[in-house]
Design a protein around this nucleic acid. Structure first.
Length: 468
RNA sequence: GCCCCCAUCGUCUAGCCAGGUCCAGGACACCGCCCUUUCAAGGCGGAGAUCGCGGGUUCGAAUCCCGCUGGGGGUGCCA
């Protein structure tokens, strides 16, 4: 059975890089008809909060990721203790009474002498009476894993290929902190093993951890899973994508008006491309059936907000249903202070969805449909203050009074006005646009007349006649 | 410093594993034209990569091998 998992720590919003890791891990499991586990890694009590966890789960759901099993490491502490005990008994781990200060000093010393630092391992060989003394004083201690000498740990990474690391590069590492909580490298092994994880898919920043974990798998007699390390996502400056680069959390994009399926689709294409097609727009189902780890790139990719934006535009204008779009759009309208009737919004969206790329841009572009009072730009004022504009508007009102208004009617009327007043089409439309929207650019005037209620249109024009 | 990973248009990438069909294909962004009541969208076209550099192997290398350089990551009682 194929089992993959996503194991975030609840210390902030869901980061784009983690989101992509989650997506790949999810697609992999679904592709193989396997199981996808969500495991919250909250053993770091200093930084983990339940609020962040809630956000994380919400963001994952919003993205469209659903998991088959859910675990929280803080609820499995007894289990980890059991395995710590096993490692102690089998001589794979030992208590270490060194203080942070002492260790810090050793590290600085190594730094100064220009030699690579690794823990000396001095607590490996404590004399029995020394140990007794510490116990008697209840001196706090950590538990360290005993790293064997000269061992070359080798594994075949599903993305990176053959990787060999000499464990002499690191000293005995801590698996249980002095406050009794277990550390990442240890719990990740216990959990992955116990949860039957067959494929560990995670960021490449975990490659250096992998040999440590393999050592623990072996010490505990667990079966070693397959590893797949995804390349990192970079910012424009080619350093690891972080807050410095601006909006980097899923939440940011959600709030800016990106659709979850567009973000999902875009993130998939960062570091992966399906073989045998040059298409780029895929449904989740298609992604599930196309996804293969073999097609994941081994080199890091730069995140391009430009391209995400374009793709979001594709989803807005041609992928999602109008109903969906309306549902997504209304909260944005409301947040901008407009009250909206669903049927009306739907009529607006139907005609205009091909003209904006994010929902917040949509609000900007479409607010002319919802404002009570039109605000005029300087250019629009200039147009309306022209004497000819008055004739155009009066004539328009006159002609409109005998008929209802829709796109075709408005075009007819504009043409008549143009002929009767000897104007260029452009001039007529400009005046109408300025009166109706207060702007010289934006959605087509015919569309506006098609969608907006007749009395509102007439109102706006009469208003202009009154004040200009 | 030490360890590890990576290297095709500005960016995402195809091609690399099974060397010739690649004077390198697609997408975003960019530029131009068309459409047009404006801005977008859309249509058409253009520019853009001596396949990081240097050696090999080979009749032939983006593709295989070695070295170098550059970039990234790790080096915690964070995950």
């Amino acid at each position: 059975m194929i089992v993959s998992r996503f194991a975030p720590s609840p210390t902030g919003f869901l980061h784009l890089g983690n989101a992509r890791t989650a997506i790949f891990s999810y697609l992999f499991a679904r592709h193989h008809g396997g199981k996808f586990i969500l495991r919250v890694e909250d053993t770091d009590r200093e930084r983990s909060t339940r609020e962040f966890e809630d956000m994380l789960l919400e963001d994952l759901k919003w993205l469209g990721l659903e998991w088959d099993e859910f675990y929280r490491q803080s609820e499995r502490l007894d289990l980890y203790r059991e395995y710590t005990q096993k490692l102690m008994e089998s001589g794979h781990a030992y208590p270490c009474f060194c203080t942070v200060e002492e260790l810090e000093r050793e590290r600085e010393e190594a730094e100064r002498r220009g030699v690579p630092y690794r823990y000396s391992g001095k607590c490996r060989v404590l004399a029995p009476q020394e140990l007794e003394e510490y116990k008697r004083l209840s001196k706090p201690y950590t538990i360290r894993f005993k790293v064997p000498d000269g061992r070359l740990v080798v594994f075949e990474d599903l993305i990176k290929g053959h990787i060999a690391i000499n464990v002499d590069d690191f000293g005995d590492f801590v698996i249980v902190r002095s406050d009794g909580t277990p550390t990442y490298n240890f719990v990740v092994v216990v959990d992955d093993a116990l949860m039957g994880v067959s494929h560990v898919i995670r960021g490449e920043d975990h490659i250096p951890n992998t040999p440590k974990q393999i050592l623990i798998y072996e010490a505990l007699g667990f079966q070693i899973p397959k590893f797949a390390h995804l390349p990192v996502i970079l910012g424009e400056d080619r350093s690891k994508l972080s807050k410095r680069h601006g909006a980097v959390s899923v939440r940011n994009y959600r709030e800016e008006g990106y659709l979850p399926e567009a973000l999902f689709n875009y993130l998939c294409l960062l570091g992966w491309s399906p073989s045998g097609t040059e298409r780029e727009i895929f449904s989740k189902e298609e992604l599930v059936s196309l996804f293969r780890l073999e097609d994941v790139n081994s080199s890091p990719a730069v995140f391009s907000k430009e391209k995400l934006r374009w793709m979001n535009g594709v989803y807005i204008r041609e992928v999602v249903s109008t109903e969906r779009l309306v549902e997504e759009f209304i909260p944005f309208l409301e947040r901008a202070g407009f009250s909206a009737n669903k049927e009306y919004v739907k009529r607006v969206i139907e005609k205009t969805r091909d003209s904006f790329e994010t929902l917040s841009e949509g609000v900007e572009r479409l607010k002319v449909f919802f404002v009570d009072r039109v605000e005029f730009s300087e250019e629009a004022k200039a147009v309306l203050e022209n004497e000819k504009s008055r004739h155009v508007l009066e004539l328009f009102l006159d002609k409109a009074s005998q008929t209802d208004l829709n796109a075709q009617k408005v075009k007819d009327i504009a043409k008549e006005i143009q002929r009767e007043l000897g104007l260029k089409a452009k001039d007529v439309w400009h005046v109408l646009r300025a009166s109706l929207t207060g702007q010289l650019e934006g959605v087509g005037v015919d569309v506006i007349c098609d969608v907006m209620p007749r009395d509102r249109l007439i109102d706006r024009i009469e208003n202009v006649l009154k004040y200009f």
